[in-house]
Design a protein around this nucleic acid. Structure first.
Lengths: 159, 159
DNA sequence: ACGATATCATATGAGTTTCAAAGCACCAGA
DNA sequence: TCTGGTGCTTTGAAACTCATATGATATCGT
C-alpha cells in the first residue's frame, strides 16, 4: 500500500494498483488534515489520534488506550494531561477498582471537534451524491474491509 | 468525517454516513500501522510522512517539503537529519542554486520500505479480488476524489 | 484473614525533539 | 559592488517521550 511496488511485483489488475496508490495518498492527506486541525485546537497529532480512539472505543482506561495506540503508558499520562487541560476528556476514578482511571470524551467538545472537519464532511457528501446507492454500499464495504485488514496488519507487526 | 456527527445533522443516506465513519476508522488504523512500521525502521511518525511525500512528489527541496507537511523549516532539518542518517534520503546541493538542497529518496530503500507493508498489501489484494472490475473502478475513483477533497480541506484550513 | 505478589497510574530524570530567532551562504537587481 | 531577499542550518529554550521507580490498590495463595 505505501511506497511504490518494485517493478516486478505488479498486482493482478491495474485498478488494484490504483486503489493501493490512492489509499496511500489518502492516508498522507488525512494525516495532514489532522495536523491542521490539531494546530487549530492546540493538540499534537498523537493527542488527536488518542482522542479519536477514546471518542470511538468508548470510555476506557489509560493502559488499554496505550496498548491500542502503541504508546508507552508513561507517555499517555502526558497526552491525557494535555487532553484534560484542554477540556477534551475527563479522568474519573473507577469506583469498582480504585487504582483504575476511566477516560471519557466530553460530548460538547465532540461536537466542537466535528465542526473542524466540516469542510471535509460536506465535500464527502458532495462526492457521495454522485454515486448510486449500490455503489455507495460497495465503497462502504471496501472501506470497512480495508480497515480490518489494517488492524490485522498492525497487530501482526507487534511481535 | 472524523468525530461523530451531532444527532441533528444526519447525512442524506445511511451509506454516506457509513462511509464517513469507515473513513475515520481507516485513517486511525493506517496511522497506527504507520506507527508500527516507524518503530521497525526507527523513524518517527512524522519522518515517515515526510519520506512518503518525498517518495511521492519526487525530488524536492526542504522548504517545499516543509510547506507540504505543514512543518517549521527548522523542524525539517532535524527530520532530514534522521532520514539521511538512516540512509533513506540524500541531500544534494542544487548546482544551479547553491543555497538550495534537493532531497531524494534512495530507490533501494524504497523497496525495503515496501516490504514492511507487505502484509497490508497482500490483504488488500485479497480484498480487491472479491470485486468486479467495474466495482474496483468505482472504489479507485472514490478514493482519488476523497484525497482531492482532503487536500482542499487542508488548504482551506491554512489561513 | 493475612501477607506476598501483581496491576494501575503517575512522578522522576535522562535523552530527544520542536520551533522561533539568529546566522551564514548565496542569488538577483540596481 | 551594494542591497535586499531567499534557502537552509545552528542555537537555545521549552516541551515531549519513555524506562524505571514509586505509591496506591487489588488479588491470589494459604
Amino acid at each position: 500500500m505505501s511506497f511504490k511496488a518494485p517493478e516486478g511485483s505488479i498486482g493482478r489488475g491495474r485498478s488494484t494498483v490504483a486503489i493501493k496508490e490512492s489509499l496511500r495518498d489518502l492516508r498522507v492527506q488525512l494525516a495532514l488534515l489532522n495536523h491542521q486541525v490539531g494546530a487549530k485546537v492546540e493538540l499534537k497529532d498523537v493527542d488527536l489520534d488518542c482522542l479519536d480512539l477514546v471518542s470511538r472505543h468508548g470510555p476506557l482506561n489509560p493502559t488499554a488506550l496505550a496498548r491500542r495506540a502503541g504508546l508507552h503508558p508513561a507517555t499517555l499520562t502526558g497526552i491525557l494531561d494535555r487532553l484534560e487541560r484542554g477540556g477534551w476528556v475527563t479522568r474519573d476514578r473507577d469506583p469498582a477498582d480504585r487504582r483504575a482511571v476511566v477516560v471519557r470524551m466530553l460530548p460538547d467538545r465532540n461536537a466542537e471537534m466535528y465542526r473542524h472537519y466540516d469542510g471535509m464532511n460536506t465535500a464527502l457528501d458532495g462526492i457521495c451524491a454522485d454515486y448510486a446507492p449500490a455503489e455507495l454500499d460497495v465503497i462502504a464495504d471496501f472501506l470497512r474491509r480495508a480497515t480490518t485488514a489494517g488492524r490485522q496488519a498492525t497487530e501482526d507487526m507487534i511481535d
